[in-house]
Amino acid sequence: MGPDDAYANAPYIPDGESYPARWAAEAAAFRNRHPPDVVPYGETTRQAFDLFLPEQEPRGLVVFVHGGYWMRFGRGDWSHLAAGPLSEGWAVAMPGYDLCPDVHIRDITRQVARAVTVASERVSGPLRLAGHSAGGHLVARMCCSDVSLTERGRIERILPISPVSDLEPLRETSMNDTLRIDSREAEQESPVHHPAPDCPVHVWVGGDERPAFIDQARWLSASWDMPLTVEPGRHHFDVIDGLADAASPLARALLS
């Protein structure tokens, strides 16, 4: 198995190519029912987050960071995943960020930290962070001591879902023509190379995912001595579905 194949998801998921359009449609329908506040946090148009607010005073703030190998998608593709936390009285912020190759992954890390800071200024109470794939990497980075995050003390839980925890293997893929990860960035931006954080982290991955992603999840869990759930029957594209249902095991891991 070559490096590109190891990190290819869609070819190994039934009807895998249809998922992005389905996500976008579900997200648009949810936004029509629950229009968010759009809050800029930086200088570019992608540096903004959608803020969904419950009808009552929020219990706290959930921040969900999307994936796409730091190269694809935007905040508006995932709005429907706010349904679970919102139904439990949590506000939900979904940040966008600039994409590679316009920026480096280290720049995206700083942007997400800024988004979390600005969102936390809008909503009081505890913070829960979740992210999928590249977003799982980014939320894991939020609890690393080298990231400037003034509200880190409010973080109660971080849920990296199918995270990329070690960037070094991606240097061998053709994606690196766009990502431009060098050895220094691979070391600095890989959560597994940072000490375990003080806040609780629960790593989550689908049991039917590519072996490379199961490995990445296990590496993070082992490096930080944090719990790992391998959810049976879930692949890389549907492992996040549970966030939309407050009663699902995934949502409970984030919210309980």
Rank of each mutant, 00 (worst) to 15 (best):
M1P: 14
M1E: 11
A6K: 12
N9L: 12
I13S: 01
P14K: 12
D15F: 08
G16T: 07
S18Q: 14
S18I: 04
Y19W: 14
A21G: 14
W23T: 06
A28K: 13
F30D: 05
N32D: 14
V39F: 04
V39P: 06
Y41G: 02
E43L: 09
F49S: 09
D50G: 09
F52Q: 06
L53T: 06
P54I: 03
Q56W: 09
Q56F: 02
P58K: 00
P58Y: 02
R59H: 08
V62Q: 11
V62I: 13
V62M: 10
V63G: 10
F64D: 05
H66C: 11
G67S: 13
G68T: 12
G68Q: 06
R72L: 12
F73R: 06
F73D: 00
R75P: 11
R75V: 03
G76T: 12
H80A: 08
G84E: 00
L86D: 02
S87Q: 10
G89L: 07
W90P: 04
A91C: 03
V92L: 06
V92A: 06
A93P: 13
P95I: 07
L99C: 12
D107K: 07
I108E: 09
I108L: 07
I108N: 08
R110W: 07
R110H: 12
R114V: 09
V116R: 03
V116F: 00
T117Y: 05
V118N: 10
E121R: 15
R122L: 07
R122P: 02
R122A: 05
V123W: 06
V123R: 03
V123G: 05
G125S: 11
P126Y: 05
P126S: 09
L127K: 10
L129C: 01
A130F: 01
G131T: 08
G131I: 03
S133T: 00
A134N: 04
H137D: 05
L138P: 03
V139F: 05
V139C: 04
C143V: 15
S145C: 02
S148Y: 07
L149D: 00
L149S: 08
T150W: 08
T150G: 14
T150Y: 10
E151V: 15
I155R: 01
E156C: 03
L159N: 08
S162T: 10
P163W: 00
P163C: 04
D166N: 15
P169W: 08
L170T: 07
R180K: 15
D182L: 13
S183C: 04
S183A: 15
S183V: 14
R184T: 15
R184N: 13
A186G: 13
A186I: 08
Q188L: 14
E189Q: 15
V192H: 05
H193T: 01
H193C: 08
A196G: 15
D198R: 12
V201M: 13
H202L: 12
V205R: 02
V205W: 09
G207N: 01
G207F: 00
P211N: 14
F213R: 05
R218H: 09
W219I: 09
L220C: 13
A222W: 06
S223W: 08
W224K: 07
G233R: 07
R234K: 14
R234W: 01
H236C: 03
H236W: 04
F237S: 13
V239A: 14
L243S: 04
L243C: 06
A246K: 12
A247M: 10
S248W: 00
S248Y: 11
P249W: 07
A253L: 10
S256T: 10
